[in-house]
Every structure is written in structure tokens, then in C-alpha cells.
Simulated assay, not measured.
Amino acid sequence: MAGEIDQDSVPALRDVLEAVLDTGCLGLHVDLTAVRFIDSSGLHVLLASRDRLHERGGVLTVAPSPQTVSLLEVTQTRGLFPPAPSPSSDQPNEAS
């Protein structure tokens, strides 16, 4: 994703994440480093995807932008998204 994640763009993000999750993957990495704004609707989609993966033993990682980090810290949800995998480890699917 790039730009803004808000009520106007969140349906597209939700569709992409749900399509990836429907494949049965257990690991998903979301690159938000180019996101300059994210609101609560974007956070809700990330949390819903994280919960869906978590229920089946999977994990959602996020590469955050400073704005994303700020939202996660304010909402006390940063700990729910582990750090992105290192380049030397097996990479989960990526949705960007």
C-alpha cells in the first residue's frame, strides 16, 4: 500500500487481504512503509486479518511507516504485529 488508508481506500485493502487469506496462507507480510496516513478503518482491517490468521496458527507482520507506528502506539496495538521477517528467513506472502 502507498498513500492513504482511510474509509475510501480500505475496501480495496480489505479485498486484497481477504483474497490472500482465502488461499489458506499462514503467513502474511503487509508493507506499509509508503503509507503517509492511516485511520481507524485501516487499523480495523489489519486487526481483522491478523485475528483470522491467528485463529489458524498464522501470523501477520507489518513493515510500518512512521504514521503507522504512531497509530499502533496510540491504540496500544503495536505488540499485536510482530516485526517483519529477516531477508534470510522464509518469507511469508506479501500484500502491498
Score class of each variant (00 low, 15 high):
L26N: 14
D15Q: 11
T33H: 10
C25R: 10
F37N: 00
T77H: 04
V74A: 11
E55V: 12
G27Y: 03
H44R: 14
T33W: 09
G42W: 05
R56M: 15
V20M: 06
E73L: 13
G58I: 06
E55A: 14
D15W: 05
H29W: 03
L53E: 03
L43V: 04
G24N: 05
T68D: 00
D39N: 11
A48G: 08
L17Y: 01
G79A: 12
T61G: 12
T23H: 03
L47Q: 02
L47H: 04
L72P: 12
L21M: 11
A12L: 02
G27I: 04
S41C: 13
L13S: 01
R50E: 14
V30D: 00
T23S: 07
V20N: 06
E18S: 05
L47N: 06
L26F: 15
R56S: 14
A34E: 06
G42M: 10
L60P: 11
Q67V: 06
S65M: 09
S70T: 10
A63C: 12
R56V: 15
V74E: 08
T33M: 07
R36S: 04
L28W: 01
T75I: 00
P64T: 02
P64I: 03
V45S: 02
D51M: 09
I38W: 10
S70A: 13
R52H: 12
V69L: 15
L17R: 01
L26H: 15
L32Q: 06
L21I: 11
D51I: 07
T77Q: 04
D22H: 03
T23Y: 03
L60C: 03
G27L: 13
P64Q: 10
R52F: 09
R52S: 14
A12N: 00
L46N: 11
Q76F: 09
L17W: 06
L47P: 10
R56N: 15
G42F: 10
